[in-house]
Simulated scan of single mutants.
Amino acid sequence: MATVSLDHVRKVYPNGHVGVAGASFDIADGELLVLVGPSGCGKTTLLRMLAGLETISAGTLRIGGRVMNDVAPKDRDIAMVFQNYALYPHMTVAENLGFGLRLRGMPRAEIAKRVDEVARLLELEQRLDARPAALSGGQRQRVALGRAMVRQPAVFLLDEPLSNLDARLRLSMRVEIARLHRRFGTTTVYVTHDQVEAMTLGQRIVVFDQGAIQQIDTPMGLYERPANLFVAGFLGSPAMNLLRGTLQVDGGLVLATAGGAIRLGTPPQADALADWRDREVVLGLRPEDLHPLADDDPAAALEARLEVLEPVGNEVFLNLCYGDIALVSRTPPGVARAPGETVRFGITTQRLHFFDPHDGARIG
């Protein structure tokens, strides 16, 4: 196991495109860190620089305290799991698992021992003689993970390893990866564009956009205190409601929007918002913090027209129209409402978010 340290690591391609713009952060020994962001944001480029598959244009990369900028991939003591598995179709599961060890000249007895141990952990003992074509998608993914595990590297690198699986299998494999990480404690860097994977797997998450780091924090730290509008809108399912308007004071704070006035009460950021009165801000409101009230409830912060109900079992998503603004409310099941109705909603004042509409930065 090892620490990983990046100091202003940059990737600039010959055509001038900046793939990664000055990434600086440390990964603790044994930590599972997730890199998340939309397609093309630079997260896989950064992972490939860690692996040595992309050259580093500037900055310093250290693994276990050793500078790795010019070290060949085979000498970095890392193992990488690719999105497409990259299994050898003519080899059995056992041969795929042990191939990397054979290349390094490890004794046959030691290879067999490690392959058997990993196969038992991943429940592949009964499939050691099968070839990849005879395996299910989940079994192929486990073989790809196992091939990395038998090497017992200092660092695991996983590049969207679950993206080719169906939803049910992704869930089970997420649990499997988390369980294996707890058992082995190997430093792991996991790349995904799936925010659910990021939130459920990562001990910390690095959020990328357009080659730049937007925020680094724990999953709940990102959810509860997004640093800017990009993070606020990217993490959360359904996404955070964002409403632009002018901040006013009328027995408490009021946001004047194109859809009407939203009464905000006195949120914890009231002091920080003093300089923003009569100025435009962006209000962020999580769907669970927008809850329907009785028709005659005087505590309503806003009224919106119900467009679509989405029952998903243990909760219901209410898709709303507030003027020309689309909103979503997350509620418990059993909401006695019908599309087309106008519904009064309360808000959780203590959980509001405010952002600068010009640079997107969090206020307060």
Rank of each mutant, 00 (worst) to 15 (best):
I177C: 06
G364L: 01
P238R: 05
R305Q: 08
S5F: 03
T342D: 11
Y85Q: 07
C41L: 07
M173L: 07
H291E: 02
A72M: 15
D275N: 15
S163M: 07
G259E: 05
G323T: 00
V343Y: 03
N96M: 02
F184W: 14
V12F: 13
V191W: 03
G284D: 12
L320N: 08
R131L: 10
A144Q: 06
Q126S: 13
L158T: 08
G98T: 12
E307G: 12
Q248C: 09
D296H: 07
P357H: 13
L222D: 07
L158A: 09
A28V: 15
F355L: 01
M173Q: 10
A134S: 09
L61F: 12
P238W: 01
L293V: 01
T266Q: 11
E224H: 07
V189T: 05
I363R: 08
R337S: 03
E95Y: 02
L243E: 02
T187W: 15
Q269V: 06
L285V: 05
R120I: 13
R263F: 04
G59E: 12
Q269E: 13
D271N: 13
N314R: 11
G40L: 11
P292Q: 11
K11N: 15
S5L: 01
P292H: 04
T92R: 04
L121M: 14
A361S: 07
T45M: 13
G185C: 14
R279W: 03
S57I: 07
A304Q: 10
A301R: 01
A130V: 08
R330C: 10
G146Y: 10
A72P: 15
A338T: 13
S172E: 04
S172M: 08
Q195L: 00
P298I: 00
D194G: 03
V67S: 11
L32C: 06
P339Q: 15
